[in-house]
Design a binder for these strands. Sequence first.
DNA 1: GTTTTTGCTACGAAATAAGTAGCATCCTAG
DNA 2: CTAGGATGCTACTTATTTCGTAGCAAAAAC
Lengths: 113, 113
Amino acid sequence: MTKTTTPLPTRAVRGSTSGVAIMAVFDLLGRKWNMRILWELSQQPLSFRALQERCDGMSPSVLNDRVKQLSDAKLLASTASGYQLTELGLSLMHTLDPLRAWAADWESACGQV
Amino acid sequence: MTKTTTPLPTRAVRGSTSGVAIMAVFDLLGRKWNMRILWELSQQPLSFRALQERCDGMSPSVLNDRVKQLSDAKLLASTASGYQLTELGLSLMHTLDPLRAWAADWESACGQV
DNA sequence: GTTTTTGCTACGAAATAAGTAGCATCCTAG
DNA sequence: CTAGGATGCTACTTATTTCGTAGCAAAAAC
């Protein structure tokens, strides 16, 4: 496995030396699949393989990597009923909620080419 | 230049075949630097090179690529005073605002290891 | 009319993601 | 038991993305 470090709020972060927490968010969420994974898990808890299927059959190696990162970041945890968002992860998704409405606006704006 | 396609809300999108707009958001914002670029531009308009510096000296080839993507997505535009967010881009950053507060919570939660 | 600055391209190297195969463990049915 | 099947995950190869440096053409500053 190619080792990658998990961006955490207080650490130095990829794409930023400032250590500002929001940059860590951008770094973490900016990695392919991370947002998608959180999104899918916000709908329901899923097993590894179910999660993989939901994410268009993403490769298990990357999924495994991401699951570890997001666990390190305390955004999800493995439970009896599968992978599941933590309180923290849930609250993140909640703050991202308005994005759905924005996406709709965006869609109509881009449609008017 | 390695060609990459810009995720737009109605198109088929990397990481999703559903074409749901929010997936396009995740795809676009999930690319390295895109969030950061929008963030920096939300603070003030910047020239290409100034933007590059703000983004920790990211390579100009990638920056150019991103600027094109974000322009295609109508989130930024080149103006007399440099690159600048469009109304749409500004509104996106606005919906992402609560993220700053969340990041602070995250920081303190991760601190309590 | 030279320097500087700016926007940007080219291109090889490094990092990250994808894709496929498969193994060890844990059920569950017989 | 024990033969399946599902699950969580690792190993490894290939493809794609990102980096890093060099540098050029056009506009601006001198």
